[in-house]
Amino acid sequence: MAEPIGTLRRPALSDKRAARDTVSIKAADPCLRVALRAPRESVAAVSTALGVALPSRPKMSGSDGARSALWLGPDEWLVLDQAGNEMLPALAKVDAFHSAVDVSHRNVGIIVSGRGAADVINAGCPQDLSLTAFHVGACSRTLLGKIEIVLWRIAEDEFRIECWRSFADYADSLLRVAARDVSSS
């Protein structure tokens, strides 16, 4: 979808930067998102159309430039384009069975970074976030406190959390109270 009048858009989370040395929590810039579903036999065609190979292994992500595909399930990916390049027109031309649904506004991205990032997320996320269990590039749908999130490790000390729009305030406030603890200890 082409960006219309920029001033019209009111993201769920404004960019409240946390000024802590051990961890920073900030709203990610708006981006394009597609909820992609495809059976195994369609993956090659869909990958070609997207220009990103859809990862086939659990917890894996694949990126090409600003476009990334996150494995969420055996036939499910969340595809992000952080440069604002449309994905749906190319996918519409794929004959192989798949489902591509625009969810750009459904989700909100939150970037948690700094050496305390994993600890802050572990305040509400029950998964093992050590580098061996959750390597750089790993992604997973999981929980953060009382909400569902998609967690993606973009660097050793940097995670992207994707949650639904109306849960962003909760996620943000939980991460901030957790950061208060992690930064103080």
């Binding site: 399930g73 499910e76 749908r141």
Partner: peptide
């Protein structure tokens, strides 16, 4: 029994 990995892969 059936389980759903509802907050994971959703299967």
């Amino acid at each position: 029994e059936r389980w759903r990995h509802v907050h994971g892969c959703a299967r």
